[in-house]
Design a protein around this nucleic acid. Sequence first.
DNA 1: ATGCCAATGAATGTCACTTTCATGATGGCG
DNA 2: CGCCATCATGAAAGTGACATTCATTGGCAT
Lengths: 143, 143
Amino acid sequence: MKRAKKKVFADFMSQRGLKSTKQRDIILDSFLSSDRHLSIEELYLKLRSKHPNIGYATVYRTLKLFAEAGIAREMQFGDGQTRYEHVSEGEHHDHLVCTRCGHIEEFENETIEKLQDEVANSRGFLIERHRLEIYGLCANCRK
Amino acid sequence: MKRAKKKVFADFMSQRGLKSTKQRDIILDSFLSSDRHLSIEELYLKLRSKHPNIGYATVYRTLKLFAEAGIAREMQFGDGQTRYEHVSEGEHHDHLVCTRCGHIEEFENETIEKLQDEVANSRGFLIERHRLEIYGLCANCRK
DNA sequence: ATGCCAATGAATGTCACTTTCATGATGGCG
DNA sequence: CGCCATCATGAAAGTGACATTCATTGGCAT
């Protein structure tokens, strides 16, 4: 799966006439082996220890590229930071966000999706995408 | 309903030992007679023509007060601005957001709410609040 | 190896808040 | 009514998270 995404990204890059660089390789590796909902800052700090020569701007621009290439998606969970989520083709899910520890869980619910379609149809709305987030305390923080 | 909210706000203010001022009265009036999803900037500009003496900071602080008093709620729809929505007691709704014209519609769906509770329960999650937004083209913009 | 064009990173700019601070109002009290 | 402790206001400065600029570096096709 990591391999598949590297392929997707490489294809995207060559298709756009963009170059392969050490930094991009490192950032992609690090992204793919990270938490599924990482902010620019978090990824930048994670890299900094091993690769102090990679700048914030490069991480920022590279994550944007991932999003354009379709292997990442920008998300906002209300903590003031944009987070980049791993995208697997054809997959969609929603989120449970812990307001205490920041933990993010994913879930899927086909019925909810269908009901959303119905709502949109009844209003003449053409759905492009949606977001559903449930905020509260995770099982761990409830103790 | 406007009257009721003014009462709620007045009570909140006196309970907190805060003062009634011309500016706050004007901002409250303007807020209550506005679109249901207004940003600080929008409300500020709306006021500016008639009351050039009211500063941005005052609008900003007053909207925060409305939120604390429970007559408004802060919302993010991904356009980079915080919007303040009118809150009616005990009412909850979700949103359809037009990505072309910015139009925001509200909807309620009891079944979706229940399914969310089920999802949260199955994960041991204690729900505080949730947000569901459907982005796409409104009936008008589809033409 | 060479040259063109993209990539990098330090620095700077932008935007939407958010806070500060000197000045101006409010309202309880005598 | 007048005093004055507080709160409120608004211009300006500060913040934080991006987003862009620009001089320099570095891929890679030839």
